[in-house]
Design a protein around this nucleic acid. Structure first.
Lengths: 151, 151
DNA sequence: CTATATTGGTTCAATATCGCACTAAAGGAG
DNA sequence: CTCCTTTAGTGCGATATTGAACCAATATAG
């Protein structure tokens, strides 16, 4: 493959990834209560995985979204009683986001609700292929992430 | 790997895909004129690739978005003079979307503007890995697409 | 044929995304 | 310390997304 062939290939990869993202997001949102969408789940899941007490800005950076978007998402979670906002004792400008019991329970329930569908995929689809592509996806994500500020 | 391990793996794959989609969309939108975003490019590119004269509904299905979203996206393109809407001679309910010269030129220009970045990726990243994952991504996309109505 | 169901598209309302402008707190230079 | 810059978060306005309701045209049943 010559370098001239690379752009169409890269383009195709991003195209497939875009479609998969959309389809998988639709699946996720089908398992979420009315009024909550994928970004809400993303925050709940993030807080469970890395531990709560994180700040809105830290999460905005983690998700690569503008801070105003994160303000909006977190306020929706607060309104639904899924997280609490507290002042950050280490920095008067900043806040901390803590999961409530309801928030933790909802995250677990959504994952449990989706697992049959995931298991069906694992039966119908050759899962070893997913295992093979995961490291490449991670590498690509890291490259794009590092590349982000450079251009 | 046992089936019990599958859900976390699937989850991880979708997670990486979600992040890559967001980063690549940001790159694309950085090359688009003010007032136009990724869905606008998606439509222009679609019309170039499969030929124009397509209907809004056909494109809504192709992009897996609600028809109201496609109405909105196409109307933005019309407002910017990038496509024309004409009645569909074969079906009085329906319309056809045709590229203008400006629309075709903009699509080409955006791709040309991005190609240095793609070529840099092709140099810095092992492109053969992307070639390897593309068929798996396609297979996964097709699976999810077929699965969509089933659940 | 007529009656009914389906389909393509728009309008409207509710919520989401995000840039811009702003405030308050913190950090750094002198 | 004071001044200036940077950082975290919010308010607001413009645009985007999407479900519900609706209309017009077409397809289908009888």
């Amino acid at each position: 493959m010559t370098p001239q062939d690379a752009p169409p290939l890269v383009f195709q990869v991003f195209n497939e990834i875009g479609i998969i993202e959309q389809l998988s997001r639709t699946v996720l949102e089908a398992h979420m209560p009315k009024g909550l969408i994928a970004p809400h789940f993303g925050v709940l899941n993030h807080l469970v995985r890395v531990g709560d007490g994180s700040t809105p800005m830290a999460m905005a950076r983690a998700f690569q979204v503008p801070k105003t978007s994160m303000t909006h998402t977190v306020s929706g979670l607060v309104k639904h009683g899924l997280v609490d906002m507290r002042p950050n004792p280490d920095d008067g400008r900043s806040k901390q986001v803590w999961l409530t019991d309801a928030g933790r329970a909802l995250r677990d329930r959504i994952i449990a609700d989706m697992s049959p569908q995931f298991e069906r995929l694992a039966r119908d689809f050759d899962i070893s292929k997913l295992q093979d592509i995961l490291p490449v996806l991670t590498e690509l994500r890291v490259y794009l992430d590092e590349d982000r500020d450079r251009v």
